[in-house]
Design a binder for these strands. Structure first.
Lengths: 197, 197
DNA sequence: ATATATTGCGCAATTT
DNA sequence: CAAATTGCGCAATATA
């Protein structure tokens, strides 16, 4: 696939990114990450596009219909600082927010297996996830970039093809015209020749 | 918006997203799509692509070269939980982290004009920014989606154009052949006619 | 200089 | 169970 030498480098690279075939050792990431996403381009986000996931807040259904950013932040639920817009700022906080009426106010690791916070195990998990997140986002950025470049390149190619078509069409018209002329002349000549016999 | 019927919807929408202008109805083919937006597509992120911004941590130069996710999280600076990978989890924390040796341990809004935390003004700003962030990300998602669709569409168009070119080329060859035949016949006929006179 | 828009980052819930 | 995704809020910037 994509062996056509006329395909430009960007497209080639794009194909590589999505097909998992690496021609370019340039990709320095040991975390290559190029999988077989093939057509996809759309899979990453579209998969959860109309889908909702419910964050740790109460935030659940949102942007579907493009209204996410006017969800309920300022108007409905959270505004002051209670629970809508906080979250981190201290996840300790979040915990407090909810735990305030079901457990001790300040960090009570006695919640779930003592895996709460400052546990070395917790930090390890967090750090690993952070790495994964960075990696994933990096990948996404590259993907987007490639798609953009690919689009631009396709556009250019499109223009060239359009021009080529115009050229060919004109050539064709010319030939057709010549042919019709030739046809008439041929008839005339033949007529003359016959009459002269 | 969305008035030109000759430009395919996706491309039209894409153009709107980037330029806010309708595509010129001058374009004859819906497949055309040849405009001058080209570069746009890259503006959003490219502008700060190779640029670094220095987060609140010490995190400064990173992903350039695609190594962001192996920056220094696990290896160098932060690992345990001290200061490298934290940040929020309690920005209160961050503050504590540093303030621990230059000011009271727990939140001391006496830092800068009392604009620190829990200030209603702070919350207002935060909430507004959160809205802006959601909006911006929503926009980005749509943009990406459009670019993807646009790329796919351009690809399809490309294929069609290629086929059209092949068709025209073949037609042209046929005509050329006919013309050459006709030419020879005409010569023969003319020769015959002349000889008969 | 203020308001909004972007962007990288870490967190947590979910997926894979 | 580990890694990958994804939405979210925060803070630093960039833009308007």
């Amino acid at each position: 696939m994509m062996s056509d030498s006329r395909v430009s480098s960007v497209i080639q690279e794009w194909a590589n990114t999505y097909t998992g075939h690496n021609l370019n050792p340039t990709n320095t990431n040991q975390a290559d990450s190029t999988n077989q996403l093939a057509q996809m381009d759309m899979i990453p986000y579209s998969h959860s596009q109309g889908l909702v996931r419910g964050d740790s807040d109460g935030r659940v259904a949102e942007q579907m219909m493009g209204l996410s950013y006017l969800s309920f932040p300022t108007s409905c639920l959270s505004n002051t600082s209670s629970m809508g817009g906080i979250h981190h700022q201290s996840h300790t906080n979040t915990q407090q927010e909810f735990s305030s009426f079901l457990s001790p106010p300040l960090r009570a690791p006695i919640n779930k297996r003592s895996i709460s916070k400052d546990s070395p195990e917790y930090r390890l998990r967090r750090e690993r996830n952070n790495v994964a997140v960075r990696k994933s986002r990096d990948k996404a950025r590259r993907r987007i970039l490639l798609t953009q470049q690919r689009a631009m390149q396709l556009q250019e190619e499109n223009q060239k093809l359009q021009m080529r078509i115009e050229q060919l069409t004109q050539e064709l018209d010319t030939l057709k015209h010549i042919l019709s002329q030739r046809h008439m002349h041929g008839a005339e000549e033949r007529a003359e020749g016959c009459s002269s016999i």
